[in-house]
Design a protein around this nucleic acid. Structure first.
Lengths: 204, 204
DNA sequence: TGCTTTCGCTACGACTCGTAGCGTAATGCC
DNA sequence: GGCATTACGCTACGAGTCGTAGCGAAAGCA
């Protein structure tokens, strides 16, 4: 949210249900209208709140949509499928499934585009979406190390660079496949992609 | 352009210089204002043409910006650097250099976002940007085959799938690195990326 | 010279934006 | 219970943009 609810303060507290209603209404509007035709007045009507309430909590469309989209990615998980390759295929498929949803497609790309000219927005995206999901890469590597599929990482700086590279390659490829090439990131594609990734990383 | 200039037609012909001026003005406005604050009225003023002239040629902001951005990617080339790895590093660096320019950053992502809800726009992007640059992948592979670095491709369908995969991975990773992670795709990163790509492809 | 199409210009209604002002509702503190 | 404080819903507003229409002038072609 734009203004975090301070802990000990007097006065009427902000309605928690309004937050949820607004974010849900934002996603619904993204599905039906897309980014460019989405107006804050419309979102407020859908959520059953006044437009002024919306402006009291978010400074604008960008921040609102980032928060609405960020919630979508929290459902990503990394179930143990027995091998590094299977784990990776699984999470990539989950990621692809989220990107197949229209509220994620139109919302995510639009805020990334806006973020190219807005450092604060870029930081917000990084904090609430990107960095938040890097946990998956870290967990996958840790699990592979436990299995003995990967040697334990030694140089922490080199290790961080590799995580960033993996994340850029995975997220970038899936996004490009889904949104630019407009082809489904189905099991066949994910299998081919994962093979290139893992073979390439293993050789390095 | 929105309406191609028909060949044999009577009447005053459309000014060719106006097209160039409008596209240049669009890029300039993208740099100074970004996507969301760019208005067609402003572009028309910058280009020294009337707003109505602009609407006669393009149906809207989306189509205009696609054409303005597409021109940026035509300067990509594939100089012979002696090896597949060097060729790939070279073209990836060129691609990164274009994406480092503000008119490409803000424009490209925005139209991709809009394209998620507009099939015609998606097709326009694919035709005027994506497919147009796949020539680089094809040329790089052909050159590598001549050098003997790659076996000649046999199955044409499998071959096409590989080209698509490579393109999604290269373009996606560079875009994500540059625009989402907001880190420079510098020589060090490109070298690491290229190594993973080529090792991964070689093993498959 | 006529015919055709484009051009620049002005004006227009419709819409969205973000904010201000007001009275009311909900909470904490005394 | 009363009071201060904050959030809420509602209405209204000026500012800005959109995309289009209508006009006379300009630039080609036969």
């Amino acid at each position: 949210m734009q203004t975090r609810t301070p802990a000990g303060r007097t006065g009427r507290p902000r309605s928690a249900s309004a937050d949820a209603a607004i974010l849900a209404a934002t996603r619904q509007a993204l599905v039906e209208l897309g980014w460019s035709k989405l107006t804050l007045g419309d979102v407020a009507t859908r959520a059953g709140v006044a437009k002024t309430t919306l402006y009291r909590r978010w400074s604008g469309k960008n921040e609102l949509v980032v928060d609405a989209v960020a919630e979508l990615f929290d459902e990503l998980s990394l179930p143990d499928r027995g091998s590094l390759a299977a784990d990776m295929e699984g999470v990539v498929l989950q990621f692809a499934a989220i990107l197949a949803r229209p509220e994620a497609r139109s919302g995510l790309m639009a805020v990334v585009a806006e973020a190219t000219r807005d450092e604060a927005l870029r930081e917000r995206i990084r904090a609430s979406i990107v960095d938040r999901q890097k946990r998956l890469v870290l967990a996958g590597r840790a699990r592979a190390e436990e299995r003995g599929e990967l040697p334990p990482s030694t140089d922490p700086e080199e290790s961080a660079r590799t995580v960033d590279l993996i994340f850029d390659m995975v997220a970038g490829a899936v996004v490009h496949r889904t949104l630019v090439s407009a082809q489904p990131a189905d099991e066949e594609w994910v299998r081919a992609f994962t093979r290139v990734m893992l073979q390439g990383l293993a050789a390095a």
